[in-house]
Nucleic acid binder design. Structure first.
Length: 544
RNA sequence: GCAGACGUAGCUCAGUUGGUUAGAGCGUCGGAUUGUGGCUCCGAAGGUCGGUGGUUCGAAUCCACCCGUCUGUACCA
């Protein structure tokens, strides 16, 4: 015999992709359903687009070639047209709206969940296929649409079980940073590259802190945090004055008012508060906007952006959403490409520890903004739009580590064991399983999960072993003895497992048949129900 | 992409200065036990030492390249 094993195909999962377990799928379904409930309540309707789009519709060709951008998975169709897997849900939505613009009633409020694909370096908690859940309002130009999206984002966080104060929706406006960069002389086409560098630097505030960002705005920064360590990242090469201006706008510039002064005509119930020297302050979005407005009064673009932010803050506050939930924060950058106005980011404020017990920097679990130009690319017509996207896979990881995500509470099926393999006997066993499945009651609106053993029935021990490993709560046993007496045995596998600790002798263990009751065959369903109820009660007790 | 660390059985890891047939624990499978899970005992299977090439009488060990994993960083629509 030649070595067949040399020809064995190696089973391997593509890197950056993952198989999902039953527990994962159930937990994610639960999350999706909670998110969907909020979106539906706000009057959004679902629409779905496919995973593939023509690459030009995604706008992702490399600038200097006719090949798609390296970051997207692409294939060529029969006719050599490039197609790509979608890398977000926004660009495909713009395509859908443009293509159906005559049928769609604007403003169009819509949501969708789906996998998106990015050809990037994967890492722990970072995949090349992951799920997003989007909501967009297309055809609404006013900032009230943006304010609404932020409020809905906050509601969604809470619907998922994240307490108020444990998350925040940060809001900025692309026009503000663009205006500031214009004001320090970085306007114009020739500075586009430097503007990107500045935005990227600001985006790293939470990673490197103000000092690191200063380096990136200036000459540059070493990977390792100090000279000579790792690679060198080239900076934006701003001078000190320019750096100061940018930092003044971004690093820690949310402003507060003493509660005693600002509180007279304001509802402080949802404001973020803190104390210094015995005096209580609250974070005031309006003061943040007004202070910044004061310092940019020469720049029309920044002024416009800040006025929009001021409106968003006021609208949110009128609806009861204060700075604890929706925070004006001029350091928010978000993607660099298609956003044109307000941008938002949902951030978790609690520590997330991974399975190794390490605290991980979690960053944002969702974000979005206004993209007024995206549909216009197709239609030539102004179709302003704003939307928000939740990183479902990331958020699921965070919730799981927080213990907020359903540890699998689905009870495995009752196992009907097989003692005789002839057709008639198998029919009897199948009928028992069916009786459990067909049962309907308030506790079991969809029946009781049950299965007949489908493996080699001749080794009875293996059947119980299977049931044990599968976590089955009960096993139904009927051999010829029980059959003749019109009885069945129901074995409580959970209780039996507990008793096994007290029995060391195998003969006793086998003959005592712990936690096993003999009942009339006709009582099958009722007794199973009763025993499952007892187990549920025990679980509830242990859980508390 | 760049820099560094690592890669031995399904899993966790030993493996001496380069030296015969590469080991252990756990897990898996079979048996003790043909109608009862766990425990115990006995037995077995499982490895191209990440891959390819090179140095050598001889390579898991040394060298080169590649692949993969991890860490940092870049990019992230």
């Amino acid at each position: 015999m030649a070595k067949v094993k040399n020809n064995k195909l190696k089973a391997r999962l593509p890197r950056g992709f993952t198989d999902r377990s039953a527990a994962d799928i159930r937990a994610t379904d639960e999350m999706l359903s909670k998110i969907r409930t909020v979106f539906e309540r706000y009057g959004f309707d679902p629409v779905e687009t496919p995973a593939f789009e023509y690459t030009d519709c995604l706008g992702k060709f490399l600038p200097d070639t006719d090949r798609p951008n390296a970051g997207v998975f692409s294939v060529q169709d029969d006719d050599e047209q490039w197609m790509s897997l979608r890398y977000d849900l926004t660009a495909p939505l713009a395509r859908h709206v443009a293509e159906n613009i005559n049928e769609i009633q604007l403003p169009y409020r819509t949501y969708r969940a789906g996998y998106v694909y990015r050809n990037e370096k994967p890492g722990p908690g970072r995949f090349r296929q992951f799920m997003q859940f989007d909501a967009d309002t297309v055809g609404a130009a006013g900032v009230q649409a943006d304010a609404e999206i932020c409020m809905m984002a906050a509601d969604t966080m809470e619907a998922l079980g994240i307490a108020r104060g444990a998350y925040v929706i940060r809001v900025n406006n692309r026009k503000v940073l663009d205006g500031v960069m214009e004001a320090i002389g970085l306007g114009g086409e020739e500075n586009a590259e430097r503007r990107l560098t500045v935005l990227r630097a600001i985006d790293k505030l939470d990673k490197f802190g103000p000092e690191g960002v200063r380096l990136l705005l200036g000459d540059g920064r070493w990977d390792g945090g100090e000279e000579g360590k790792g690679d060198f990242t080239r900076g934006a090469r701003l001078d000190d004055e320019q750096v100061d201006t940018v930092m003044k706008f971004t690093a820690g510039v949310t402003h507060g008012l003493p509660t005693s002064k600002g509180g007279s005509d304001r509802d402080l119930g949802d404001m973020k508060t803190w104390s210094i020297d015995g005096e209580e302050y609250f974070t005031d979005n309006r003061t943040t906007c007004l202070t910044l407005l004061h310092s940019v009064r020469d720049n029309p673009l920044a002024k416009e952006g800040l006025n929009e932010l001021l409106q968003i803050a006021s609208l949110a506050e009128s609806a009861g959403y204060g700075s604890r939930r929706i925070l004006i924060d001029p350091s928010v950058v978000r993607g660099l490409e298609y956003y044109t106005g307000p941008v938002y980011e949902a951030e978790l404020l609690f520590d997330v520890t991974n399975e190794k017990g390490e605290v991980v920097q979690f960053g944002s679990v969702g974000g979005g903004g206004r993209y007024d130009g995206l549909v216009k690319r197709f239609t030539g017509r102004d179709v302003p739009a704003t939307g928000f996207s939740i990183g479902v896979s990331r958020l699921a990881t965070a919730l799981k580590n927080l213990g907020k995500l359903g540890t699998d509470d689905v009870v495995p099926p009752v196992l009907v064991t097989v003692m005789d393999g002839d057709t008639e006997a198998l029919g009897r066993y199948q009928k028992m399983a069916q009786a459990l499945r067909d049962h309907r009651s308030d506790d079991y609106p969809n029946g009781i999960r049950a299965e007949m053993y489908q493996g080699n029935w001749k080794k009875f021990g293996n059947q119980l072993k299977y049931a044990d490993r599968r976590g089955c709560p009960l096993a139904i046993i009927q051999g010829s003895d029980e059959r003749e007496a019109g009885e069945i045995q129901i074995k409580d596998l959970i209780e039996g497992k507990r008793l096994s600790g007290e029995i060391t002798d195998n003969v006793t263990w086998r003959e005592s048949r712990p936690a096993q009751v003999t009942v009339k065959e006709a009582e099958l369903v009722e007794r199973v129900k009763a025993m499952l109820a007892e187990q549920a009660e025990d679980r509830a007790k242990a859980g508390n």
